[in-house]
Design a binder for these strands. Structure first.
Length: 586
RNA sequence: CGGGAUGUAGCGCAGCCUGGUAGCGCACCUGCUUCGGGAGCAGGGGGCCGGAGGUUCAAAUCCUCUCAUCCCGACCA
């Protein structure tokens, strides 16, 4: 491709509404343009990277035995009513009506459609296992789209759905996808980690997320420094605290703490550590129940664990008026002693003696609070968020957890029979009896993967694309295309590279060298050939890697072979693939 | 949906407080000179100042409403 005939609208300045570096660089390099909040046009350059990722995904899915298909984006309401999600899904589902006033939605995910197809076309266990996938635009009316392609409302997703006769075989399908995902993200040149994940409201029995490690990531993950345990903090279990609770030494005593409401304020006011405090939070569930949660003062509650414990979908901190009703005091003075609602305490609380806690009286706390002697709890449970420094939850492991930020680029779920049951997707087994299909679903955010790669591979001057997903592999910069020799040498190399299957962009624009170099760095094509009168005099091309800046003078007649070799090698580096060992991991 | 902010040329911004004929840099077009890290000079085009209503002789500027966008929280690829 000749840049003089291409559309690559680079920007010298960073658009004001782009916050994170991948969003900024994708806009500046002319890869994407915004159409509305969370809705983007893929420009020619951006689309090339997107297609590269898609192709890697396609190859690995096909290798794993999956079949590509394409489902509609517009889905009739009836299907969603059958699964019950028409009413459950909420405002994130964009609903619309046709001219006959029939209701539809834009598909945010396709369990219903695929299950409908499979129940109508698959009748025998002999047709299993089956794994069907598509690469398609999805629409989710996100509450808050942000960070460019990172969280769009319309986005390109690969979604796959597996169907098996029983749970064990579904586990095999799951493991195959787990392995395929390892290959995919490795081939994309990403530094990633598979972590145990919460199954969220899609339901199902277990799942892993594939996280690209990046400080700008929206997810917090923990991993063990000794074994291969890694999990989203939402999911990370904590082991039961060990040892014995110290004996109480202090009598229960009221102390005045005027205006001291937060843990930090009270701790400072009483000259104690937050670890000696009990934090009491009052929640209301979506079922209307009211509960208190007690944690060590310096810990964070994991609301997902609380929901699981309470068997509800959602909990919310109660408003100030309700705090007064429940505790008898304004916000900031709640404590476990004398509370009327059920109290759920984190396991750690049972190990604490002589604590400070709210007294349920304005401007007052208790000192010398001891579980058992002074208050009772309805139940102890693992309720707090895992943190760096916590012990690895694996029983036999002595390691310590470290924490990271991650960008979720893929998610694999074992779904079970939720959808197959709701839609009646069954096959006949070997005995001729109906058997409900066991499903799995597997997603990859395509655009997000490109953004994540940029998040991980850039410098102050721009993007540094990993070879496998770079929009072009080689950039030829003609320093002065008006000089016949320069133009001729560049054009010749350009044609030769193309003939050898190299994706090459020729910067033949009538621009000054400075602009061309700046654009080259911004756009981040891995290899750059600089063609100028200076080098031609010596009979060499100057070739440099975008990643290292390392410059090499390569004789003109060797350049073609050299470049073809380097591109091949760079692609190869990422292409080593785990053989389909059917990982036993779950 | 709650909290915060911003809408002026394709991009980045000034002007607004204290109403008076819309400006700067980059980009774009023409010409000349330049040409190894975002050139110089000269000339030029481009704006319903997000939208609607109001106050006023007069509104980018003041008031009201609205829409859009961005950031922080709960959802997710």
């Amino acid at each position: 491709m000749r840049l003089s005939q291409y559309l690559m609208p680079t920007l010298k300045e960073t658009p004001a509404d782009a916050e994170i570096v991948s969003h900024q660089l994708m806009l500046r390099s002319g890869m994407i343009r915004k159409v509305a909040a969370g809705i983007y046009t893929y420009m020619p350059l951006g689309l090339r990277s997107v297609r590269k990722v898609e192709q890697i995904v396609r190859e690995e899915m096909d290798r794993a035995g999956c079949l590509e298909m394409l489902m509609p984006m517009v889905i009739p309401a009836e299907l969603w009513e059958e699964s019950g999600r028409w009413d459950q899904y909420g405002r994130e589902l964009l609903r619309l009506r046709d001219r006959k006033d029939a209701q539809f939605c834009l598909g945010p995910t396709h369990e219903e459609v695929i299950t409908d197809v499979v129940r109508n076309t698959v009748k025998s266990y002999r047709q299993l296992p089956l794994n069907l996938y598509q690469i398609q635009g999805k629409f989710r009316d996100e509450i808050r789209p942000r960070f460019g392609l990172m969280r769009g409302r319309e986005f390109i997703m690969k979604d796959a759905y597996s169907f098996d006769l029983d749970s064990d075989q579904a586990d095999i399908s799951y493991a195959k996808m787990y392995d395929a995902y390892q290959n995919i993200f490795r081939r994309c040149g990403l530094n990633f980690r598979a972590v145990e994940a919460d199954t969220g409201n899609i339901g199902g029995s277990f799942s892993h997320e594939f996280m690209v490690l990046a400080d700008s990531g929206e997810d917090a993950i923990v991993s063990c420094d000794a074994c291969d345990y890694a999990a989203n903090v939402e999911k990370a279990q904590l082991r039961q605290p060990e040892g014995r609770c110290p004996m109480p030494e202090l009598e229960l005593e009221k102390v005045e703490t005027p205006g001291q409401k937060t843990v930090a304020e009270v701790a400072e006011f009483l000259c104690i550590q937050p670890q000696q405090m009990l934090k009491t939070l009052l929640f209301e569930t979506d079922a209307g129940a009211q509960v208190a949660v007690v944690l060590r003062g310096d810990r964070e509650l994991n609301e997902i664990k609380l929901c699981r414990k309470l068997g509800c979908n959602e909990v919310q901190l109660v408003d100030e008026a309700t705090v007064e009703v429940l505790s008898g005091a304004p916000c900031g003075f709640a404590g476990p002693i004398g509370l009327s609602c059920p109290i759920f305490a984190d396991n750690e609380v049972a190990m604490m003696a002589d604590c400070v806690a709210g007294a349920n009286v304005v401007d007052t706390h208790y000192r010398g609070v001891n579980y058992g002697r002074d208050f009772a709890v309805s139940e102890f449970a693992d309720l707090r968020q895992a943190e760096a420094g916590d012990r690895c939850p694996r029983f036999e492991c002595t390691g310590t957890l470290q924490s990271w930020r991650g960008i979720e680029v893929g998610h694999v779920f074992k779904l079970g029979t939720t959808y197959s049951e709701a839609l009646g997707a069954t096959v006949l087994n070997a005995e001729g009896k109906d058997e409900t299909l066991v499903m799995g679903c597997y997603g990859i955010g395509i655009g997000r993967s490109v953004a994540a790669a940029i998040e991980q591979n850039h410098d102050a001057n721009g993007i540094i694309f990993p070879m496998p997903i770079a929009p072009f592999q080689v950039l030829i910069t003609l320093l002065n295309p008006k000089e016949a020799q320069v133009a001729e040498a560049g054009e010749t190399l350009y044609r030769q590279l193309q003939d050898n299957g190299i994706e090459v962009l020729l910067d033949d624009r009538d621009e000054r060298p400075g602009s061309k170099f700046k654009d080259a760095d911004l756009v981040g094509i891995p290899l750059r050939v600089t063609v100028g009168a200076r080098g031609l005099k010596e009979g060499v091309f100057e070739i440099s890697w975008r990643s290292s800046g390392e410059k090499m003078m390569v004789p003109m007649d060797e350049a073609l072979q050299w470049l073809v070799g380097q591109v091949g090698e760079a692609m190869q580096k990422f292409t080593q693939v785990t053989p389909s060992t059917q990982s036993t991991r779950k």
